[in-house]
Design a protein around this nucleic acid. Structure first.
Lengths: 227, 227
DNA sequence: TTTCAATAGATAAAAAAGTATCGATATGTC
DNA sequence: GACATATCGATACTTTTTTATCTATTGAAA
């Protein structure tokens, strides 16, 4: 019974954050020549509940999984990729070519996940003109024209905390509609602009606290699966 | 009516990930000389629901907030800090002194959040012996004795993806009980070891997808507040 | 060919997280 | 000194997310 599933447009946020995990893992399976994968296997390797995995996959898979064998690796990888838009690149600019900025600029992994950081900006004149990871570094003044000319909608902020809001404002003025914020300050933006904060202290908090609890009350609190 | 609240031992994971945000913001208020803060103000600046903030604070605050004025900044900062253990440092080791590893080693911000990365390890002999951010870089062989001698329980993995599991295993053998994993691979660990995965593609996924939805269906999807 | 076990998918239940509402209370204002 | 109001804390409610259970199906093995 080959269901012709139409992937649902609306999907849980939590599902969304797991899809890249599936994608990454299945991609490695494909590279290893594996042809089929079951939700049970995915669940086991990613420390998730199998039912949860099935529900997630049901949302994005165009084809029903086969009892006894699971999902076809190539197909599933395509489906997730399509759903997430990993085939058509989102273009982004990055501001703040410090250590974090450099990581993002030079790590080609993000291209696999549909993000193409086309250029970096920095206020330091010594950085401007050079290239990193094949990407030009430009002075801040060039941001507006470039963003508008290329119709870029995603901005990445990797400047020090105390400059983040200023850069954010500038991005908004240029027409950026989604901001990935690596500074540890909340950003004030207009209604129609999205912000995603990347937040190491929050992550750390969960880990450290669970560890403390574990020492206090020996129980089976174990894997921390969310993001 | 000054309630003598005993902060609850068990707290929502989501609360836990917000506490550092409150802490960071309130810390800046304190530095600015502000003496009181209301949950409404916190909520507004951090893009959260005021009731949610109140509930979070009620869990950790030792003193009831005052109607009309809110919470006393110094007290609240202490309470959150105490609850999170930001006064007594957790010691950690880091393996993989690449770009990400260097950021963590040299960024003193983490000390404010109770994490003291005492030393870095790398298999590259040219890195061993140098210091970064005042922390020594040592060869992998020294890990076990150091971890055991200092009783360190937290390990940070910042090696390339394909070496992460190996490093993880090594950490587990040394007695590490909590792992903060910056590699984009799931780690296989024994029951009693915690893992927290840091996961940029997952974060990105949420942002990119919301942006895509926004273009498709103009609605008021806006701030993304979780982590 | 028959049986069996692993798997998917659907539905229901539970748990976690977030939101709305309401009475109480302290603080500033008149 | 009385009053209006911003704020808290508690309770109840809603939504989101996760987990459990059940049935059908299919490939593999006896």
């Amino acid at each position: 019974m080959s269901r012709q599933n139409t992937p649902s447009l609306v999907v849980m946020k939590s599902t969304l954050s797991r899809l890249p995990l599936y994608y990454g893992y299945i991609d490695r399976l494909q590279a290893a020549g594996v042809e089929a994968v079951s939700s049970a296997m995915l669940a086991q390797h990613l420390n998730l509940n199998p039912v949860l995995v099935r529900k997630d996959l049901a949302q994005v898979s165009s084809v029903a999984g086969h009892p006894r064998t699971g999902f076809e690796v190539n197909q599933l990888l395509d489906d997730i990729g399509n759903y997430m838009g990993y085939n058509k690149m989102d273009e982004a600019i990055l501001v703040g070519v410090g250590s974090m900025g450099r990581i993002l600029l030079t790590n080609s992994k993000f291209e696999k996940f549909g993000l193409n950081i086309v250029v970096g900006f920095d206020k330091d004149p010594y950085l401007c003109g050079i290239q990193l990871g094949g990407k030009h570094i430009l002075p801040m003044e060039k941001m507006e024209s470039l963003v508008q000319r290329m119709g870029i909608r995603i901005g990445i902020i990797t400047v020090p905390d105390d400059q983040a809001q200023e850069v954010c404002d500038q991005m908004v003025r240029c027409g950026i509609k989604a901001i990935w914020n690596f500074a540890f300050v909340p950003l004030k933006v207009p209604e129609d602009v999205l912000v995603k904060n990347e937040n190491l202290p929050s992550s750390l908090a969960v880990l450290a606290h669970k560890l403390a609890m574990k020492s206090a009350v020996p129980s089976k609190i174990n894997e921390i699966t969310e993001n």
